[in-house]
Design a protein around this nucleic acid. Structure first.
Ligand code: ZN
Ligand code: ZN
Ligand code: ZN
Ligand code: ZN
Lengths: 141, 141
DNA sequence: ATCTATATTGATAGTCATTCTCATTTGAGA
DNA sequence: TCTCAAATGAGAATGACTATCAATATAGAT
């Protein structure tokens, strides 16, 4: 249950935190901004403060429950940390986000960092393109 | 000359634009924020408005003269578009930025995008780690 | 179940990077 | 040199996010 997850993360089990965690788990879109989470909750009749959303997300990230990304849209995007690491490809027309994992790229990154004398700790890889899905094409022609 | 570059880009040759372009060309640090550019110019005795710096950088980018990056520091970083494409590795302790190009990664990206049905148009790859250079170690122990 | 000490919440004010507004100035062609 | 649209710069405005703080809720002790 979500309460367990919070406790294991060393966080008190509170109503706002449970609301956010539950939303993240039940949303079809895995990648959301703080504003979107706030809007979905309040539109769903929940009462919660925007500051609380930002705070909870920061704590969830520190606890390793979620990860954050900076796509070119500018806003920070959060997603539940479930399953293995992956990177992203974003449609520049309709905004759709797909995930991928590529062993070759991951390996090359480690080699590159080492060859430059860096101890690699993290990386951010995002591809941008047009997905041309039916919904995408309908959006703009 | 810089005037040529501006004219070729379809931009009027103005004093502020020349100042910014010249600074970008003569700085040892190739990657700078708008604030840094503004500060370096004004500290150098030049008179220029911060809004003008932001505007010029946006125009330079649209014209393909410079590229922008969003490292995890938050601020947007600009660099002169000279030479071939490259990606970046940033030291999370001292902020040093190194550039690299990896043919294997570039190729895999195209393959991944295609396999997901996307027409690839751009990508952002940034590695983060500790460089442990002498200056880096001096910074925090 | 009740109490208590402490952590959390949420409304709001503040911050910081970036963009907008608009009166004034400037560059490029006539 | 003249003309006038384009560009500039000072400051206001925006938008995402963070800090403040009084009110509230949680976890553990009684
Ligand atoms: Zn993802
Ligand atoms: Zn699309
Ligand atoms: Zn370093
Ligand atoms: Zn670079």
């Amino acid at each position: 249950m979500d309460s367990e997850e919070l406790r294991n993360a060393g966080l008190k089990v509170t109503t706002p935190r449970l609301k956010i965690l539950t939303l993240l788990e039940n949303s079809v879109e895995r990648h959301m901004t703080a504003e979107t989470i706030y809007r979905l909750l309040t539109e769903g009749g929940e009462v919660i403060g925007l500051a609380t959303v930002y705070r909870a997300l920061a704590q969830f990230e520190a606890a390793g429950l979620i990860t954050r990304h900076h796509f070119d849209s500018g806003q920070t995007v959060y997603e539940l940390e479930r399953g293995p690491h992956h990177d992203h490809i974003v449609c520049i027309r309709c905004g759709r986000v797909e995930e991928f994992y590529d062993k070759v790229i991951e390996e090359r990154q480690r080699e590159i960092a080492a060859s430059l004398g860096f101890v690699l700790s993290d990386h951010a890889l995002t591809l941008y393109g047009e997905c041309n899905s039916p919904e995408c094409l309908a959006r703009k022609g």
